[in-house]
Nucleic acid binder design. Sequence first.
DNA 1: TAGATTGTTAATCGATTAACAATC
DNA 2: TAGATTGTTAATCGATTAACAATC
Lengths: 240, 240
Amino acid sequence: MESIDKVQGIVEKKELLRCAEVSPAVIRRLPRYHRYLGDLIRAGKMRISSKELAKLMGVTASQIRQDLNCFGGFGQQGYGYNVKYLHGKIGELLGTDEGFRAVIIGAGNLGRALAGTHMFDRRGVTRVALFDNSASLIGSKIYGIPVYHVDALGAFCREHKVEIGVLTVPKEAAKSVADVLVKNGVKGIWNFANMELKVEDESVVVENIHLGDSLMTLCYEVKNRLSESVEEKNEDIVHI
Amino acid sequence: MESIDKVQGIVEKKELLRCAEVSPAVIRRLPRYHRYLGDLIRAGKMRISSKELAKLMGVTASQIRQDLNCFGGFGQQGYGYNVKYLHGKIGELLGTDEGFRAVIIGAGNLGRALAGTHMFDRRGVTRVALFDNSASLIGSKIYGIPVYHVDALGAFCREHKVEIGVLTVPKEAAKSVADVLVKNGVKGIWNFANMELKVEDESVVVENIHLGDSLMTLCYEVKNRLSESVEEKNEDIVHI
DNA sequence: TAGATTGTTAATCGATTAACAATC
DNA sequence: TAGATTGTTAATCGATTAACAATC
C-alpha cells in the first residue's frame, strides 16, 4: 500500500511540474550544469554534492538545488547527486534524446563555421543540409553536408521533418526565409541575422543571437574598468 | 546664482552616477537600445517618446526611462528623446568613441567569419591582426587583416596597445593564450572557446560566448512547446 | 496656459539565498 | 545511530512596473 502511495505521489508531482512554468532564468542555467557535469564525467567523478558543484561553478548550492527541483528530485539525501545520472537527466530535459534535425540557411562565413563544428552532434542535433542561393555552391558538400538551393528549402523541411532552422542569411532575407521554415513545420529558429526575428506562429520558438551586443557589453566593461582603475589610483594619492 | 546652483547640481549628480554601480541587467540592455535607435535614425525618425520606443521594442516605458536615468537625463519633459542625441550618448557609454583595437587569435572557421564581418567597425573597434599557428597562413591576409604567428602575439599587443582579444582557439589553448594577452596589456577578452575562461587580473574583463548553451536552450523550448501543443489538444478533447 | 512626457519615488513582483526538517 | 546532504519553505534581495510630481 505504502509503495503505491509513493508512486502516486511521484506521478502527482510530475503532473504539477509539467504544469508549473519554469522560469527562463532557470532554463538558461541548465546547459551550463550539463556542461560542467559532462566535464566531471570525463574527469572520472562519480558523485557530487550541491556544495561542491556550487564551488566549482561559482554559484550558490541553494540555487543548484532549487533549480534542479523545478524538474524533480535528482539527488539523494546524505549522498548528493550521481554525476552520470544527473547529466543524463538534464540532457533529457534539454532534448538531447529527441533526435532533432537542423538545416543551416546561408553558406557564408558563419554558416560554414557552424557547419564545421561538432556543436550540433554533441547535443544530439543532426545537420541535414545547407541552403544558399549562390549557384557555384549548389550540389557541393561542406564538411559532408549537402548544399541545396534555397528554393528547395520548404519542400526539404517538410519531407525530412526538420525541427530546427539556423539562419545565417543577411538580415534583409531573414524574415522571408523564416516564413518558409515556419510554413513547413520547423519549430525552432536559431537566428544569427542582426535583427530581432518575430514569427506569427505561437508554437515556433526563436532564439536570437546578437554577437554585436555581446561585443558592445565587453567594450562597456573595458572602458569602465579602465576608468575605475584610474579613479582608484587617484583616490590612493588623495588619501595618502 | 541660480544657474551656478544648477550646474553644481549636475556635477554632483554625475559624480554620484559614476560611483553607483549600474546593474548588469541594465548594461546588457544598452546595446539593444543602441541598435533600435540606429534603425530609427536610418528610418529618418527625429524624436521618440519612451512610450513609443517601448512599444517598438516590446518592453515597458518605465524600464526605458529607468535604464536611461542610470546614466543621466537624456530626455526632455513633454518632448521625449532626440533620437540622434540619445543614440550618440548610448554609443559613448558603450565605448564606440574609444577607438579600441582588437586582435583575433585562431584563424579557423569562426576566426575567419569574425574577421570578415563589419560587426567590429560598426562599433568603433578595429581588427588589427589575426594570429594562428598554421605555417601556411602566416604572412597572408584574410579580409585585409594580416595573419601572424601566435608566438608574436605578446609583443604585438604591447606595441600596438591592443585592448581586446578575440579567442577562437580550441579550448585547450584558451587559457595559455589568454595569459599572454593579459600579460601584455589586453583589457577585454571575447572568448568563444567552449569553456569558462577565468583570468587572475581583476582589471581584465572576460565575456564568454556559449553558442552551444544557446542551441540547447532552443532545443529545450522546441521540445517543450511541442509537448505543450499536444497537451492543449488533449485538454480540448477532454473538456468537450 | 494646457498637454505631454520625463525623471524619480514608491509598490510590486520575481528570483536568489538562507535555514531547516526530512531522510538517506 | 550519527553525519551528511537533499528537498522545500521562509526571508532577503534586486529588478521591474506603476504612479506622479516636476517641467518642458
